[in-house]
Design a binder for these strands. Structure first.
Lengths: 229, 229
DNA sequence: TGTACATCAGTGAACGCGCGTTCACTGATGTAC
DNA sequence: TGTACATCAGTGAACGCGCGTTCACTGATGTAC
């Protein structure tokens, strides 16, 4: 029987998985050589058999986090029924992608931070799937079905990504009032994006009116700067 | 003549200023007890005469960074001529605030990171001025002048902040193509926010059309995922 | 006005810790013959 | 089929460093009398 300490088998992939789990629990600061090695019951120096330094390992864990995000976006889009009218389906898929992005940030704030942390090395390969590509595909479908003006494709990615990423950052960073339901954020931001893109929401086909927004309970809940300083 | 090493005078404020300068140059990671003390030519233990620990000092430096941002927003708003028609003035002030936010992130990325970094202690006082309040004031002026629907106030802060903060994060984090001019980002995001809020831009009074967007040079520049992974 | 003294704001050395990384090594694997 | 050997993937100890923080101290300040 082989000594289980030697020849782990696939230590590189195991370290990345461990990094993913550590980042999920504790964020970027938990990505340390010794902790990663301990997670795989391996000596710290074994890490250097598979990565030139910690920076490269961190960059790949960040990539895994982004890929996890992209997969959830794609899965949410694919969950939209395919028997809808093409235009409505394109809109619903676009909304599902944004909602998945927000849900990921709210449910896995540490992983979200890791996905977009500053890295001092490049990842070993490109994101696959890529969240950016998933977004671009959805926008192109909006154009193909006539729901968005073709010229809007020039700035639509920037508009959509800014809004959703900004809201996701606030959800992950707990910058929003704790009693603010995620659904309110989702509705406000996603409806706002559709209006910014000149796309009519499938529910309320009257753009530029606040009707789709749930009524504020008492005074405007977002007006409090208790948490968002 | 007093020994200059003793009785610094206002070491607390000086440490915060030094922290601001260090964060500006090197971001949150540069906020270290020893480096801060050295910046003021003081021994590390002197820091503990004015702050219980590093976390509290960091929280106050972050506050200073947010206040610097808020001041630039307010200054930009106040630079809008006051002899304009009230409605147009309110819109221009709102645009100026957003543009200042984006310019701050692009010009001082490290300071921007510091402003919104995670802290393990609360700041010693509230932000003054507060960027959030500056935004709220501008939105209320949009309503007061009839440029925005009052009901929109419920979600307008979230929509505006998400979009601008998201774009600012990308500018600060160098997630956007390097050859993409800041002006393109500014125009795309700020025009998008106005459309999302149902506010007619003062230039192009035809909302929901892409006319205000500069023509894409060749293929859509944002479609490249070279830098935005 | 001068002096004793409590208070304050620093010093300087050290502690303990955990980090990334290196180095000589050793055990396991796989291949040539 | 068995064996020598090159190669690979680990070990374990150590290095050097820099970190936040503590502690006993000391020099300067300001106030009471």
């Amino acid at each position: 029987m082989a000594d289980p300490r030697y020849h782990h088998g696939n230590l590189r992939a195991a370290l990345l998985d461990a990094g993913f789990a550590l980042a999920r629990a504790g964020g970027p600061l938990r990505l340390q050589v010794r902790e990663l090695a301990a997670a795989e019951s391996v000596s710290p120096s074994a890490v250097y058999r598979h990565f030139p330094d910690l920076a490269h390992l961190r960059a790949d864990v960040a990539r895994l986090a982004r890929e996890a995000l992209a997969r959830e976006m794609q899965t949410a889009a694919d969950a939209i029924p395919s028997d809808l009218v093409a235009g409505e389906r394109a809109i619903r898929r676009f909304q599902a992608i944004g909602a998945a992005y927000l849900a990921f940030a709210a449910r896995e704030p540490q992983l979200f931070d890791t996905a977009f942390m500053a890295t001092e090395a490049p990842p070993s390969c490109e994101d696959a799937p890529s969240a950016w590509e998933v977004l671009l595909d959805a926008l192109q479908q909006l154009v193909a079905t006539g729901e968005m003006a073709p010229a809007r494709l020039a700035d639509a990615p920037l508009i959509a990504w800014s809004s959703v990423h900004g809201a996701a950052s606030m959800l992950a960073g707990n910058l929003l009032p704790a009693d603010l339901p995620d659904g309110v954020v989702r509705t406000a931001v996603l409806d706002g994006v559709l209006r910014a893109l000149g796309v009519r929401a499938p529910d309320s086909r009257a753009p530029n009116t606040p009707s789709a927004v749930p009524a504020a309970s008492g005074s405007a809940p977002l007006a409090s700067r208790a948490t968002l300083q």
